[in-house]
Simulated assay, not measured.
Amino acid sequence: MKTYSYRFLLSAFAVSGLLLSGNITSLSPFYAPAALAQSSYNDGQLRQWLQNTGNRMVSIVNSNLSKKEQKAKFLTILNNDVDVDTIAKFCLGRFWRVATPEQQKQYVQLFHQVLINSITSRLGEYKGVSFEIGKISTIENGRKSIETILHRPKQPDISIQWILSTESGSPKVVDIIGENASLSVTQRGDYTSFIARHGNSVDALITALKKQIANHS
């Protein structure tokens, strides 16, 4: 299976801006129709939500916790602040519609595991990170884009935009934009290309995810 390079995963969920290299899994938004209304969170509340969430992530990155403890804490954040099931569905693209219910269930479960493994695999290497929040703006479907500047020890600062949705009733991160590129769109292309190269087989992706998990140290 091809290994893809992605530069946003830890930036998004650890607020560290660190460059990680992983396999085929990353984050993607599942854009709801414009008719779905966003909940009534004002800009100040969303900024505070991101500040609090970011502080929790940074505290994990900068802690002396074991990998197991860090993984457990990140899993809580992931489950609370990211709609991973919807993300997984979007990542499968057109192949979600042809997957059987059992394939869908198995794929989503594997997606959760690969995602948390990828986030926590190298956290211990990157202590000393910090961040600051910049401007907030409204984008399509009433979603919000919040800029952050990520400070990394002995490395240049980088700018990351967090795309937030409140369609579920509470804020959720649904996309990350770095270097003027939506990383979600790129990842969806990676998934669908992988499946297409393997005879349009969703099982091929499931097998690859299982192998990735088995190889995770």
Rank of each mutant, 00 (worst) to 15 (best):
K2W: 12
F8Q: 11
F8T: 11
S11I: 04
F13Y: 10
A14M: 13
V15H: 06
S16T: 06
L18G: 00
L18F: 06
L18P: 00
G22Q: 05
N23Q: 08
N23C: 05
I24N: 07
S26A: 13
S26Q: 11
S28L: 06
P29V: 07
P29T: 02
A32W: 13
A34L: 07
L36G: 04
S39N: 14
Y41T: 06
Q48E: 15
N55C: 07
R56W: 11
V58Y: 09
V61W: 08
S63K: 04
L65N: 10
S66Q: 11
E69Q: 15
K71F: 10
K73F: 13
K73A: 15
F74I: 01
L75F: 12
L78F: 13
L78Q: 03
L78E: 08
N79F: 06
N79E: 14
V82C: 11
F90L: 04
F90N: 01
R94V: 03
V98G: 03
K105I: 08
V114Q: 10
N117W: 02
T120N: 08
R122G: 03
Y126N: 14
V129M: 10
F131Q: 07
E132F: 09
K135M: 12
S137A: 13
R143L: 06
K144M: 04
I146P: 01
I149D: 03
H151A: 11
R152C: 10
P153E: 07
Q155V: 07
D157V: 03
D157T: 08
I158W: 01
Q161D: 14
I163L: 10
I163A: 03
I163Q: 04
S165L: 04
S168Q: 12
S168G: 05
P171L: 12
K172R: 15
V174K: 01
I176Y: 05
V185H: 12
Y191Q: 06
T192C: 09
T207V: 09
T207Y: 10
A208W: 09
K211R: 10
K211Q: 14
I213D: 04
A214R: 13
